[in-house]
Computed example of a mutant assay.
Amino acid sequence: MTHPRRFDTKIAVLLRDDLLAWQRLNVTAFLISGIASTHGEVIGKAYTDADGLTYLPMFRQPVLVFAGDPETLAAARGRALQRGLAPAIFTSDLFLTSNDEDNRAAVQATRTDRLDLVGLAVYGPKNAVDKVVKGAVLHP
């Protein structure tokens, strides 16, 4: 039997607490892709089943999903930036677009203090990420 491995880093997703189920899933998938594409060290090795078929690698550590109100998300973004952690963000405007170019244009057209955040993801030292998501609750 193996024992749970403790990591000195944490991957966290913070979602606005009033999203519909499909929105929560969609936002989480988009946000976590930002972590995976930027921090290659979080990706484990490929999986192989007993018949020798190979499957794609996944994160090597758990992803914790939290929920909070708009103020909690805004505060978390500020704390992430203060700690030098670049967050992935998803704004409500992105529900109205259908491609990466339009997504980036929607964010670029909005001042930082006017971004209507519906989600963010961060990766970094465990204690720093814990401080970023302070005030949020684990997603039910």
Rank of each mutant, 00 (worst) to 15 (best):
A12R: 05
V13W: 06
L14K: 03
L15K: 14
L15A: 13
L15W: 05
R16L: 11
D17Q: 01
D17T: 04
D18Y: 08
D18S: 15
L20E: 12
W22K: 04
N26H: 03
V27R: 14
T28C: 02
F30E: 04
F30N: 06
I32G: 08
S33Q: 04
G34C: 00
A36S: 13
S37F: 09
S37T: 08
T38Y: 13
T38F: 10
H39T: 14
G40F: 04
G40Y: 06
E41G: 11
E41N: 07
V42I: 14
V42R: 14
G44C: 11
K45A: 15
K45S: 15
K45V: 07
A46C: 07
A46W: 12
A46S: 14
Y47P: 06
Y47H: 02
Y47M: 02
L53N: 07
T54I: 12
T54E: 05
T54Q: 09
P57W: 07
P57L: 04
M58E: 11
M58Y: 12
R60N: 15
R60W: 06
V63I: 15
V63L: 11
L64F: 13
V65S: 09
F66S: 04
A67Q: 11
P70H: 07
T72Q: 03
T72W: 05
A74M: 03
A75M: 09
A75R: 01
A76Q: 05
R77A: 03
R77Y: 10
R77I: 03
G78S: 02
G78L: 04
L81C: 04
R83I: 07
R83E: 10
R83S: 13
R83N: 05
G84P: 04
L85G: 10
A86L: 10
A86W: 01
A86G: 06
A86H: 08
P87I: 05
A88D: 06
I89P: 15
I89C: 08
F90R: 01
S92A: 13
S92Q: 13
D93G: 01
L94K: 01
L94E: 13
L94D: 07
L96H: 01
L96R: 00
L96K: 03
T97F: 05
N99D: 05
E101K: 02
R104E: 11
R104C: 02
A106T: 03
A106H: 02
A106V: 07
V107I: 14
V107D: 09
V107W: 00
Q108M: 03
Q108H: 10
A109H: 05
A109I: 02
R111C: 06
R111S: 15
R111W: 03
R111D: 09
D113Q: 05
D113N: 01
D113S: 12
R114F: 11
R114I: 00
L115I: 11
V118A: 03
V118P: 10
G119P: 10
G119W: 06
A121D: 12
V122E: 05
